[in-house]
C-alpha cells in the first residue's frame, strides 16, 4: 500500500500548503468555506454507517450494532472519548463472546 500512502499524504500536504500560497480571493468564498465545513460531516457519517452496518458489499446487523448503541448513548451524555470507545468495544466483544450475535 506504499504508493497509496504516499500519494494521499502528498495530496493532503498540498491542500494545507495551497491555503498559504494561493491568492486569498480564490479560496476565501462563502460557498467554498461552507462545502469544506460540511464535507467532514457527510464523509464521516458515511464511513460510520459503512463501518457499523456492512461487511464488504452486504448490509449486516451483527454485534457491532449493540456496541454502537452504547456509543451513541454515551456521546449523548458527553462521556469522555476513551470511555465511550472502550465501552462500545467491550459491549460488542461481550455479545460475541456470549454467542448472541456474530
Amino acid at each position: 500500500m506504499w504508493p497509496a500512502v504516499l500519494i494521499s499524504s502528498l495530496g493532503c500536504y498540498a491542500e494545507k500548503l495551497a491555503g498559504y500560497l494561493l491568492p486569498e480571493q480564490l479560496l476565501d468564498r462563502r460557498v467554498v468555506h461552507h462545502v469544506a465545513a460540511l464535507l467532514p460531516v457527510a464523509l464521516l457519517a458515511g464511513i460510520v454507517t459503512v463501518q457499523a452496518l456492512s461487511t464488504g458489499q452486504a448490509v449486516v446487523l451483527d454485534a457491532r450494532v449493540p456496541g454502537m448503541a452504547v456509543a451513541v448513548g454515551l456521546m449523548a451524555r458527553r462521556t469522555n472519548f476513551l470511555v465511550m470507545v472502550v465501552s462500545a468495544a467491550a459491549t460488542t466483544a461481550l455479545v460475541r463472546h456470549l454467542g448472541w450475535m456474530p
Binding site: 457491532r64 456509543a71 472519548f81 465511550m84 467491550a90 460488542t92
Partner: peptide, 19 residues
C-alpha cells in the same frame, strides 16, 4: 474478539459528534 471493529466505528462517530 476484542470488539475492535465496533471501536473503530465508535471512534469515527466520536469525530463526527461534535460537528
Amino acid at each position: 474478539a476484542f470488539g475492535l471493529d465496533a471501536a473503530i466505528a465508535a471512534g469515527l462517530a466520536g469525530l463526527l459528534w461534535p460537528r
